[in-house]
Write a protein that binds this DNA or RNA. Structure first.
Ligand SMILES: [Zn+2]
Ligand SMILES: [Zn+2]
Length: 468
DNA sequence: CGGTGCGGGGGTC
DNA sequence: GACCCCCGCACCG
C-alpha cells in the first residue's frame, strides 16, 4: 500500500508540485530541513533565511534548468579519501565538495589529510536520482518558499557548510552569514503565474522526471502516480523505475510520518554522519553490517551522536520570525584532523597540481572504476555488485541507523585522535533563524590557539602523502 | 577566492 | 522537444 501523506500544512489538500502552474496557499510552514533526503516537499516562510539562501547540508550546485522561477540544484556528492581510510573517530573522511567548479577541481587529487593514509581525495558523486544527482528545487511565492527534492542520496553526508566556514574563520577568512542579494534573485511569482520558463529559444519549464538517460532507466511516468497504488522507486519516485539502487517497498519517514516524504529503505544519508551504509545495489533493504576496512584496520564500533540528522525537527516553525545570525562553530576539524590539514583543501595557497589519475592500485582495491574526462575531472563508477564490500560500516550495532536519531549532542573528544585535541573545548551551539534541525555539534575541536600553532606548510610536505 | 544565480549553448535521446 | 551537462559571467562578501 502506498502511503503518501500530504503534510497538512498545505491548505490545498491536493498535490502540489514545484512545477505546477499555481501552487496552493499555505497556512502552516515547515521547519527548515537542511538535510532533506528522499522525495520530499517543504514549505518555508518567505523570511526563512536558510530557505532564502537555498542552502542545504548537502553540497548542492546550481543547475541551469532555464526556468527563472524555479531554481534547480543538483548534488555534488561528497569528497572522500580514495582509500576510504578509517579515521580515528571510526568514520570515514567526508569533506564538502566545493561548489565552485574550479575550487572543486583543485580539491580532487589532493592527498588525504589523514597522515597515515596515502590516499587521495576524490569525489564520490551523487547518483541518487536514477543515476543522476539528487536535485533540489526552490520556488518563491509571495509569502512562501517551496522546496522539493528528488532522489535519495547514495553517499554519505558531506561535512556541514558551517564546518567549512568555521575552518575558514580560523584561517582568518571572515565568514559572514548575511543573506546576499544575489542569492535572492530567484524571481518571485506575483500569484499564480504560468511557469513558461524564459522566453528564449524553446526551453520550457523543467519537468522533473527525467526521461533522458539510458542507464538511468527512468521510465516515463508522472509524479502524480504517487497517489496510486503502484510501487514507487525510492530513488526516483517513479513507477516502473529500474534504477539499480531501488528499494521497492514503500517506506515512510519514521520521524515525520506526516510529511510528504518518501523515506528510503536503505538510504546512506540517513545513517549517521560519520558512517554510512553501502548501497544495496540491485538488491534491497540493506542491513547495517560490519565490513572489513579496505586498509586492514579493525573497524571499531562507533556511535556518533553528535549530529541531529535528517528531518528531525528541533523546534517548531513558530520561531523563524527573526532572522538571527547564528554564531555556532561546529567542529572545525572533522574526524580528528587538525584544521590546517583541511585548510589546504579550501585554499589554493599550497595547491599542488595533482592532476594525475587516481593510481590503479586504489582503483582495484576499492572496486571502483575511474576514468578521466577532459579537464582533469575524475569520475567514478560504482559497481553495484561490488559496493557491499567497498565501504566500512561502523554503525552496525546501532539500531537507530535506519531512520531514527539520537540527539545527545554531547561533545566527544577522542583521546586517540591522530592529533592532540586534548585541549579541545566544547564550542557554542547557536540558533538559526529558521531552525535547522540538523546542525552539527562539535566532536573534535580545538581552540584557535592550538590551531594557529600548527604549521600548515609542514603538513603539506609530509612525504608519506606523496606516494603517487 | 569561492558561493551563488543567471543564461547561452552543446549533446543526447 | 526535453533535459542533461558544461561553461562563462556577474555579484557579493
Ligand atoms: Zn585517506
Ligand atoms: Zn547526493
Amino acid at each position: 500500500m502506498i502511503s503518501f501523506d500530504m503534510k497538512p500544512s498545505v491548505s490545498n489538500p491536493g498535490d502540489w508540485d514545484i512545477n505546477d502552474a499555481s501552487i496552493p496557499h499555505v497556512t502552516h510552514y515547515d521547519t527548515f530541513q537542511d538535510w532533506s533526503d528522499g522525495h520530499c516537499r517543504y514549505v518555508y516562510p518567505a523570511d526563512c533565511e536558510p530557505a532564502k539562501r537555498h542552502t542545504s547540508g548537502w553540497a548542492m550546485r546550481n543547475t541551469n534548468n532555464h526556468n527563472v522561477h524555479i531554481l534547480k540544484k543538483s548534488c555534488l556528492g561528497v569528497l572522500v579519501c580514495s582509500l576510504r581510510c578509517q579515521l580515528s573517530s571510526g568514520g570515514i573522511l567526508r569533506l564538502r565538495p566545493a561548489i565552485c567548479d574550479k575550487a572543486r577541481k583543485k580539491q580532487q587529487g589532493k592527498p588525504c589529510p589523514n597522515p597515515r593514509c596515502s590516499g587521495r581525495l576524490e569525489i564520490l558523486s551523487c547518483r541518487g536520482h536514477c543515476g543522476y544527482p539528487v536535485t533540489h528545487f526552490w520556488r518563491h511565492t509571495e509569502n512562501a518558499i517551496f522546496f522539493q527534492a528528488k532522489g535519495v542520496h547514495d553517499h554519505p553526508k558531506p561535512e556541514a557548510k558551517a564546518t567549512v566556514e568555521a575552518r575558514r574563520n580560523i584561517t582568518g577568512v571572515p565568514v559572514t552569514r548575511k543573506p546576499r542579494k544575489s542569492q535572492l534573485r530567484l524571481a518571485t511569482e506575483p500569484r499564480a503565474v504560468k511557469l513558461v520558463g524564459r522566453p528564449r529559444k524553446k526551453r520550457r519549464k523543467e519537468s522533473i522526471p527525467s526521461t533522458k538517460n539510458p542507464e538511468r532507466l527512468l521510465l516515463h511516468s508522472h509524479f502524480s502516480a504517487a497517489s496510486q497504488s503502484i510501487p514507487l522507486c525510492h530513488s526516483c519516485n517513479e513507477t516502473g523505475c529500474m534504477c539499480p539502487s531501488t528499494s521497492w517497498s514503500m517506506g515512510k519517514s519514521l520521524s515525520h510520518p506526516e510529511s510528504s516524504h518518501w523515506y528510503p529503505n536503505h538510504s546512506f544519508a540517513h545513517s549517521d554522519v560519520n558512517t554510512w551504509s553501502p548501497v544495496a545495489g540491485p538488491m534491497v533493504n540493506y542491513e547495517p553490517t560490519q565490513y572489513p576496512s579496505p586498509i586492514g584496520l579493525t573497524v571499531s564500533s562507533f556511535n556518533n551522536n553528535n549530529t541531529l540528522t535528517n528531518n528531525h525537527n528541533l523546534s517548531n516553525a513558530s520561531s523563524h520570525h527573526t532572522p538571527t545570525t547564528y554564531v555556532a562553530y561546529p567542529h572545525p576539524s572533522p574526524e580528528g584532523f587538525k584544521p590546517s590539514d583541511i585548510f589546504h583543501l579550501d585554499s589554493s595557497i599550497h595547491c599542488q597540481s595533482n592532476t594525475q589519475e587516481t593510481h590503479p592500485s586504489s582503483i582495484t582495491q576499492d572496486n571502483h572504476q575511474y576514468f578521466s574526462q577532459p579537464g582533469n575531472h575524475h569520475f567514478e563508477h560504482l559497481h553495484p555488485h561490488h559496493l557491499q564490500s567497498n565501504f566500512e560500516v561502523m554503525h552496525h550495532h546501532d539500531p537507530l541507523a535506519q531512520g531514527q536519531w539520537q540527539n545527545q549532542n554531547h561533545v566527544q573528544v577522542n583521546s586517540s585522535a591522530i592529533w592532540n585535541f586534548n585541549e579541545s573545548i566544547p564550542l557554542p551551539v547557536g540558533t538559526m533563524a529558521c531552525p535547522s534541525p540538523s546542525f552539527e555539534f562539535p566532536e573534535l575541536s580545538a581552540t584557535e590557539g592550538s590551531q594557529v600553532s600548527y604549521s600548515t606548510v609542514d603538513y603539506w610536505a609530509v612525504p608519506q602523502n606523496q606516494q603517487f
